[in-house]
Amino acid sequence: MSAEPAAIDAANISKSYGSRQAVINVSFQVKPGEVFGLIGPNGAGKTTVLRMLVGLIRPTSGSVSLFGHDVRADFENALRPVGAIIENPEMYKFLTGRQNLAQYARMRPGITNAQIDETVALVGLADRINEKITRYSLGMRQRLGIAQAILHHPKLLLLDEPTNGLDPQGIQELRQMIRHLADSQGMAVLLSSHLLHDVQTVCDSIAIINQGRTVASGGIASFTQGKAASYRFVVADLNRAVELSKAQKWKIVSKDETANALVVESDQEPSSLNESLVKAGIKVSRIEGVTRSLEDAFLELTRGANGSTGGLS
């Protein structure tokens, strides 16, 4: 196998809007066929990163190549295998859905009417495609946005918060479609979202971005492993157990008054805490390991200097 160039190679990209640094030294790679999540709270810099990937704005420093073609120096070749939605997919309000798609189809050679029909059916707009898009709901516009992005069977799909405006069923369908496109056509996909659970089930790997910096990246599994372990203790006297745990340098993750349970976290062995509790006369009826959720990792990583975890539902 020859070394295939990365679908996306973002090398140390930074962007300032005036004096505001929106993105600071972000680097990541997405392999062909990989589904990659760019996750961060509102204002983290996701859209700014995507704008740089497709050449809408030029990085203040750093560079981007798509499939080995530099976006600035070799724009047409870099963008040829790409489909994208950046922020809201605004289209021409005075045209119908189909006329809008036809506009984009004419910008590439060889897109047939059959291909347009097939894409329209795939996004579930077949019965409304001949209406002016002023009559579309937000969800329908989002579907049409996805249609224009996948019309030409791209090898790289960039979707900026694609679940905006979709109902839960639409979100579910979108996830399935993304996974299907990645698995059946080997399409690389970059998804951005401020909602972790939107993407965690479809992504192979993720990068978490906060205040313009990547704070973590890697395979999904790496976020839930190798960290301090958590344990859930069900005890007879919750308040005393909490105090004792604190004294033993265990971190209290949560406590549940009704179930008389507390979740604690530490590098120490749980048996040592159990021993201490029993010695202090607190009956322990159950101990279980708790897998650290990705959500916890995300919250921890994005708990920024200004505490901005806004936008998490």
């Binding site: 497709v54 963008l79 994208a84 950046i86 922020e87 605004e90 910008m107 590439r108």
Partner: peptide, 13 residues
Amino acid sequence: EGTLKLLLIRPVS
């Protein structure tokens, strides 16, 4: 209108 961005992400200079 915001339509320029979908126009400029095609492989057309």
